[in-house]
Amino acid sequence: MDIPYTVEVRRDTGLNNGKIGIWLFLASEVMLFGALFASYILIRTGSPSWPRGDTLLDVPLATFNTIVLITSSVTMVMAWASLMRRKFGTFRIYMGATILLGFVFLIVKYFEYSHHFAIGEGPSHNNFLAIYFTLTGLHMLHVFGGMVVNAYFWGPGAKLYQTNPVWFTNRVEHSGLFWHFVDLVWIFLFPTLYLL
């Protein structure tokens, strides 16, 4: 038994199942991060003093990380575009680059975190660091999750390309949508935490 509209598009909605699924999932993710941002605003406005992000955090490193993530979004699009043009070899290169850039992001983050812990500024230090660790930690989990999915499409999942290239391309597109969302969250996080 096959589920209809897994690959092909339903005519009256103009979408396949996966795309609706991923957009709905992203909607719930917006609510998740939205709630955290709202909490951030509430805690910050309710607090008598609030440190500026750049006094506690490393802005140049984060800027570098921002560039890394934006670049990875570009390579992600390129990976999907290569599949659309049925160039599997270039897809592998771009997808590999996306995963690698994700790694770079996590490694930089690791250095940031370990620096904070080394000087005793853990999440319990103050509420700024509490929200910083919570937001960036949750974001890192998302980066990691996206990398796992991308790695699957780069490696074992790519077998699908041989049998059903359209379906595979769709899947990469959906994973790309998630990756862009993760990127977007960071683009909100960076100014909110590091600059404001």
């Binding site: 955290l36 909490s39 805690i43 999440p123 509490a130 660790f133 919570t134």
Partner: peptide, 17 residues
Amino acid sequence: EAAGVMQLMDRVAGTSF
């Protein structure tokens, strides 16, 4: 879920959300 994560942080990591 966000609130749950924050409460978990309060309980486990000692934050004060």
